[in-house]
Nucleic acid binder design. Structure first.
Lengths: 144, 144
DNA sequence: TACAAAGTTTAGCATAGGCTAACTTATATG
DNA sequence: CATATAAGTTAGCCTATGCTAAACTTTGTA
């Protein structure tokens, strides 16, 4: 204790940021999945494991396993060997993710970044943006 | 294959973004550690497990285990029961992380976000920002 | 209708990153 | 200098995410 905190931010405040990042990570995958399932349902009428796996770039078995966890969390539902659906809460989360995603991507474009980079970076950034920052980004998009 | 890609971006391009995010995640922790170790060395002359654990908000044993991985990757070095050091590559990575961190945080402040939020969000965002986006952020900070 | 292809699931493995509890080493102080 | 306390380490556990290979369903078509 003695040597720590000689100056600057307290350890508690510091660690809060890292805790938030770790928490974000565990909800991140869920967000990606429900968003993608929503997209697939809108585009093709249904969401199938294979399509999810292809778009995420992971193995089929990985998707199956993850979907089981999402089902446990009440975000998705499915019958064996059938397509995947979103629960009410799943749709809510998907809409939320999409909203964030769109704002971050538009923001990056407004900032002058190329389309390809905007698409890629938005995917990583969207999960780590607080409400406050998201609002600031939306404001910036409006003004530019 | 038949039903996929009816419109929009190809599956390959899509999955590239997610692959980048997954790759970012595995280097993320390493970046946080070396950056923190560098800070501790600068501030207190040495980096000790306990301080790292406190600042990250994780258990001591977790730090020990992670440091072992970092040592395997040639980023840190240490003698048993002694403080942690950075290798040349560790320092390089730390400097890189710090540079990114500073730019992202300043950028968020310039965007009009509060100090607390800027600090917290920067921690999550810095690992998902490409060189192109980082440059755009730096430009923005300059102009504002 | 029967079978082949496509899609889904299960089993079993690996790694990363958390944790607690028990043990060892280093150090500061009476 | 002996020992209590602080710091570091080890062992063993857990969950999340990945993978491949093998088994099982569904479905389209000969």
């Amino acid at each position: 204790m003695a040597l720590s905190n000689k100056k600057g931010t307290s350890a508690k405040l510091r660690s809060a940021a890292f805790k938030r990042v770790r928490a974000d990570h565990s909800s991140e995958l869920a967000g990606d999945y429900v968003e993608m399932i929503a997209d697939l349902i809108d585009e093709q009428g249904e969401a199938r494991c294979t399509d999810i796996a292809m778009r995420l770039g992971v193995a089929n078995a990985t998707v199956v396993k993850t979907l089981k966890r999402l089902q446990d969390r009440g975000l998705t539902s499915q019958e064996p060997y059938r397509a995947v659906f979103l629960t009410g809460e799943g749709w809510r989360m998907a809409e939320d993710s999409r909203r964030k995603h769109v704002i971050v991507e538009k923001f990056l474009l407004a900032l002058g970044v190329s389309e390809t980079t905007a698409r890629i970076d938005a995917e990583g950034i969207e999960h780590h943006v607080s409400v406050e920052t998201l609002k600031a980004m939306a404001r910036f998009v409006m003004r530019n």
